[in-house]
Design a protein around this nucleic acid. Sequence first.
DNA 1: CTGTTCGTTTAGAATTTTCTAAACAAACTA
DNA 2: TAGTTTGTTTAGAAAATTCTAAACGAACAG
Lengths: 174, 174
Amino acid sequence: MGGQLDEVRHGIMDTLGRITSFWGFSKIMGQLYGMLYLSAAPMTLDDMAASLEISKGNVSINIRALERWNMVRQVWVKGDRKDFYEAETDFWKIIRGVLKEREKKEFDQALAGIGRIRTKSEEILKKEKSVDTAFALDRLKKLEDFIKTMDQLVGVLLTLEDLKRNFLGIVKKK
Amino acid sequence: MGGQLDEVRHGIMDTLGRITSFWGFSKIMGQLYGMLYLSAAPMTLDDMAASLEISKGNVSINIRALERWNMVRQVWVKGDRKDFYEAETDFWKIIRGVLKEREKKEFDQALAGIGRIRTKSEEILKKEKSVDTAFALDRLKKLEDFIKTMDQLVGVLLTLEDLKRNFLGIVKKK
DNA sequence: CTGTTCGTTTAGAATTTTCTAAACAAACTA
DNA sequence: TAGTTTGTTTAGAAAATTCTAAACGAACAG
């Protein structure tokens, strides 16, 4: 059956594996997602393990990661005791989630880090006059400004998306 | 000397190490960059190796990576035979470069990959009618559209930046 | 020439990450 | 109850990455 279609499935798994790997997730996450994304029916852990030829334990941890990022959701199939999974198909939603939970957090803590360092070097400069410290402080300020801008940019993006989403929600609420 | 300032240097190296690591570069690249960024004077391979307590070979390959991404440049110091390095301080320029050479390329090849797969599945569907293939094809089209949008988005960003840069260039050309 | 001083390359060590097979625990079935 | 069928956890194997020390070659100095 479907030997032709299998080529297609293999292709998408390869491409999505690359993408997730590039963006700092595991390659297998992408492969699992791709597999579910092209599947008309939800799949079980065993299905996926067999299809990717990896251990069930490996599927288990990677599918839980996908769930954590809302890229996949568990669905219940009547009469079957296994867990079934299907792909979340709203890419914008996925991206917004990742932006919110991962990227924003990273920017925030980078900002906090630089802030601490800048404060520190301001204190030093107050006590002892030093050309080197003055130079470093100047650069630190510039770096902090930059990161602050990036942080705000992400923040605005997320807020805009939230507003849009809420607005649409209200409108659709018949 | 400067035991206080060293704390600051250590801090920035830590923070920038995190950042580069997060964005898929090596941690040491961030540490080297941070070190040069806060240094008033350009530094040599040996300086950096000593300061980070890593081998000179390690510094060599990582500084070359930084050079490749235009995050650092080599400067010549009169009377000294060693290579000196200093940090590029224009962050926007750095980001644009990375966007252009790494992110754009990644989007392009993801797009090409999906395109190939979609074509393939269209061919299959022409020959043999299959519900599964039709389903997969539908999803592939949606994925392709999405990636195309992202790809164009990056493209527009880069074009805008180029225009802005050229415009400013003309203006400044007194 | 002969020495030295550089930066780069490389072989293998050290570390980190990823994966599997087996053990396990929870939930069902008969 | 005893025996399956599940998904998860885990100890250690396997693989990939990163790092170092030493070898090397080029450029220079005496």
